[in-house]
């Protein structure tokens, strides 16, 4: 029996092979790779690294040596990262449309929810990895700065605050991911994310200052308000309730509606 004959019989069979479905773990692996294998993702990753590496010497150079604490490093790295890290998750979703890769991606995996789920898992993993790296770099910077100044390093971030900061970053990622699912366009979602991260907090506090009634409801309707209380490091029961309410309003509801649309929309 020749190979040609073998292929002929195989191809001529008119029922599908007994194949196992693509396992979720494999999809996560592929989606993680897709986050970092393009030229633009390389530069995004490079700039995230450059920002972190620049932040450490900047703190050491510009802060009075006696005042340097661990929290300064965490904040100097963490704040710019809160703008940059979410872009990784955002572009991973919108790229399927803006770069039209979805035509191939969803042809290989027609159950689109699994692809988006894999992307979400990757996005969560990216946040956790980034925060671990942020804390590690900050600790190294703090030890180095203390050694230079000849003082004992100051560790002023509690275990709970580490969790709060991680949740702060996770909310940024979730907001970017939600915008990506709803808008399915890289430029639109990026603009949306910068409005969320930079414009909304300012506008909201200005409005709260000018209008008393808004000042009272703002914590219950503005997600960035709750996000910033996480950054401040103390959370009361009421603040958790406010954060939960705004998360449902701005993350869960839009994500559910956006996913319903995404699962049915025609891929062109």
């Amino acid at each position: 029996m020749t190979t040609v004959a073998a292929t002929a019989t195989l191809r001529a069979v008119v029922v599908p092979r007994r194949t196992a479905p693509v396992p979720f773990r494999r999809l996560v692996g592929v989606e993680l790779r897709k986050m970092f294998d393009t030229r633009s993702s390389f530069w995004l990753l490079a700039s995230i690294g450059i920002v972190a590496l620049a932040a450490v010497p900047m703190v050491i150079a510009f802060q009075p040596t006696g005042d340097i604490t661990y929290a300064m490093f965490v904040n100097t790295i963490g704040y710019p990262w809160s703008l940059m890290i979410p872009m990784v998750g955002l572009l991973s979703v919108t790229g399927e449309w803006s770069q039209r890769g979805g035509l191939t991606t969803f042809a290989f995996v027609p159950r689109r929810g699994r692809v988006i789920g894999a992307k979400a898992a990757c996005a969560a993993g990216v946040v956790l990895a980034a925060m671990a790296l942020c804390f590690a770099l900050s600790a190294a910077g703090n030890v180095a700065a203390a050694a230079v100044a000849g003082i004992d390093p100051v560790w002023d971030v509690s275990a709970a605050e580490h969790l709060f900061l991680t949740l702060f970053q996770a909310i940024g990622m979730a907001a970017a991911f939600t915008l990506a699912v709803v808008l399915r366009s890289s430029p639109a979602a990026l603009v949306g994310y910068f409005v969320f991260a930079l414009v909304v907090p300012t506008l909201s506090s200005m409005l709260a200052g000018a209008q008393e009634w808004y000042g009272d409801v703002a914590p219950w309707v503005d997600l960035t308000h709750g996000q910033l209380s996480l950054f401040a490091g103390t959370m009361t029961g009421e603040q958790w309730a406010q954060l939960g309410t705004t998360a449902v309003l701005w993350l869960v509801v839009p994500l559910v509606l956006g996913m319903r649309r995404l699962l049915r929309v025609e891929i062109r």
Binding site: P21, G95, G101, L103
Partner: peptide, 23 residues
């Protein structure tokens, strides 16, 4: 959509220009 691993059953090329340019 019911094929478990469609790429092993059917090869599809709908638009050659729909590929991520950065890869």
């Amino acid at each position: 959509a019911d094929l478990p691993n469609p790429g092993l059953e059917i090869g599809v090329l709908l638009d050659a220009s729909a590929q991520h340019g950065g890869r």
